[in-house]
Write a protein that binds this DNA or RNA. Sequence first.
DNA 1: GGCCGCGTTTGACAAAAGTCGAAGACACCT
DNA 2: AGGTGTCTTCGACTTTTGTCAAACGCGGCC
Lengths: 229, 229
Amino acid sequence: MSNADVTGQARNALPSVPYFSGLDATSLEAVAQAAVRREYKKDEVVSLRGEPCSGLYVVEKGWFKAVRISPEGREQALRFVGPGEVFNEVGVFAGTSNPATVVALERGSVWLIHEDTMLQLLDGHPRLVRSVVEDLARRVLHLASLVEDLSLRTVEARLARLLLERADEAALNRRRWATQAEMAARLGTVLEVLNRALHRLVDEGLIEVERHQIRILDRKGLRAKAMIE
Amino acid sequence: MSNADVTGQARNALPSVPYFSGLDATSLEAVAQAAVRREYKKDEVVSLRGEPCSGLYVVEKGWFKAVRISPEGREQALRFVGPGEVFNEVGVFAGTSNPATVVALERGSVWLIHEDTMLQLLDGHPRLVRSVVEDLARRVLHLASLVEDLSLRTVEARLARLLLERADEAALNRRRWATQAEMAARLGTVLEVLNRALHRLVDEGLIEVERHQIRILDRKGLRAKAMIE
DNA sequence: GGCCGCGTTTGACAAAAGTCGAAGACACCT
DNA sequence: AGGTGTCTTCGACTTTTGTCAAACGCGGCC
């Protein structure tokens, strides 16, 4: 594929990304010119924590996770990122190395934009500034809740919260990669503990677990477990 | 004290705050006009988590802590804030309610700036934008490390890290309000657990605890405990 | 169909963290 | 100097979480 084709693809894909929605045609073109496409297979590492900042990533296709890993190999997921979302912003805007290790959960692709491009773009693009600032503020909010969860709630309560939060209607459809091990990493615990917590909720009749979905039977009961308020 | 006097004070104090260092005279004047001064006694609540966003706070004097509190009353400190620093930015820039409860650790004072003032200021002030964006990115970084700590490290390892991080030279001077209970809240545990961890480090000859300072005897040993790398 | 691999489930156990109750030490106030 | 309240220290105990090892189930592949 020629260079021009790739830029054309970028020109096509980027405007629909919420992050860049406020950009004028000229700037979008500049970003599209500067964007590089990358593809990843399941479990491939996109960026490694501590490495020199590689730039801003925009997800085109597939899902990715950002994690911190302990010396012993335990994993804490910081976030999961899907199509249209952006990651590694923190490294770019704090001017530091990559803030987390990012791994592909399935086959997927991203656009990589060099940090200088982003930093320059910040001047004179008020709508982009708003996007960036709001995005960062929301990330702080999300991490603060994660801290609160880890520090003040049991695994069971965290699980109940997760289920309530992510279940539209009465059921939560699990993606192919959303195994119990991934859920455990998200909640900051291990597979076995999560599994037991899940079954305790089943035994109490609050949820029902099936092949690729979890059904919520008793929202009120879950809320009590979640220790909301 | 008259209104003019108060504004004069603000005009005097704000330019030395790093956050506002990039602002031109006209904008600084606008901020000074809009700033309200507040005083707090020890343990007074400055802003309450979940309440409508009260604006951006700039610390003039004293120390404050931002915390999340569980229904049972356990406390997780998110950060400690001192003179020249800013808090509640996240509520302002995410457009949400107050992200955390903030309490005065000692007698102190702040300047309160209404959120609209800040949001308007963002347009056309590139240096302020840089400050804000970098500040938020650093806050994300800090919380990510806190998450990593809580999830992947024992209390003892967290304590060792805290000591290494905050001990300039070989000693760490504790402020009057830095009791073991506050340290415990910072590390996400309770008084007794922290106390025991502290004494384990003493017994192993890594540190020495005195009235208002902690002396580090063996940096290398501490680093091993901290599980760095 | 039978084998293989991944994800799930289970039990027994170990370790870390949290709770309760109480006593000691110290700093500050009168 | 004595008393009071906060901060610190300690012991015994409970609960929660993590580890290890093994079996099970289901789907895809030869």
